[in-house]
């Protein structure tokens, strides 16, 4: 499996939300629905507080519980990669994938089928970055193939401290945050 990963530098992210706007524009996400969002996380004890901004979305897990739970095979991997997509023509809207996703990263479209972040696979196909990555004004977001040791994402993960969200689920999420 070719593993695509997104690496987000929380030291550079300013929480501007451009990634959210870019996603909505690129993917024509209807009003009131969101495929990505930004979280401001504060930890510590005053005055030793630490704040980070995280641009979050589907983690395109290599062990995606949403895909395993889908009873109609509407959820599938794109062309032998870890990019998890939903086929609207097969999705019944049963909600199994929503209940199975630990990141609550899926959404129900107005037509009734389930949707989610696609890592902009239509852009990736053309050698472009996902819209959120391409639009980031601080250049804190990176995208690439994790199995290529020379890719930006591989080099960043090899040299910087990082984490992924809720790795204890065993889903092997592929959105990483540099800390």
């Amino acid at each position: 499996m070719i593993r695509y990963a997104m690496v987000i530098d929380t030291k550079l992210c300013i929480g501007c939300g451009d990634c959210v706007v870019a996603c909505k524009t690129e993917n024509k996400v209807p009003a009131g629905l969101n495929r990505d969002w930004v979280v401001e996380a504060t930890t510590g004890t005053y005055p030793d507080l630490k704040t980070e901004f995280r641009s979050e979305r589907c983690n395109h897990c290599t062990k995606p519980t949403c895909l395993y739970a889908c009873p109609t095979a509407a959820t599938y991997r794109w062309e032998g990669t870890n990019i998890v997509l939903v086929d609207p023509d097969k999705c019944t809207g049963c909600g199994a994938c929503i209940a199975a996703c630990p990141y609550d990263a899926r959404l129900i479209m107005n037509e009734g089928y389930v949707s989610k972040c696609t890592f902009c696979h239509h852009r990736v196909e053309q050698g472009l970055d996902p819209a959120c990555v391409a639009s980031c004004p601080t250049n804190c977001m990176h995208f690439g193939v994790l199995d290529d040791p020379n890719s930006t994402v591989s080099r960043l993960l090899a040299t910087r401290e990082h984490k992924a969200m809720h790795e204890e689920t065993g889903n092997e999420p592929q959105v990483y945050y540099l800390t």
């Binding site: 939300g17 959210v20 009131g32 969101n34 401001e40 504060t42 005053y46 909600g95």
Partner: peptide
């Protein structure tokens, strides 16, 4: 402390603020 605040809108139908995708029909 540990506080995580959404600073962009996230109000997906039946997902936010908590998942409620399975209702009386499933019950």
């Amino acid at each position: 402390m540990r506080e995580e605040i959404l600073i962009t809108v996230r109000d997906n139908y039946k997902i936010d603020p908590t998942v409620s995708v399975w209702g009386w029909q499933v019950i």
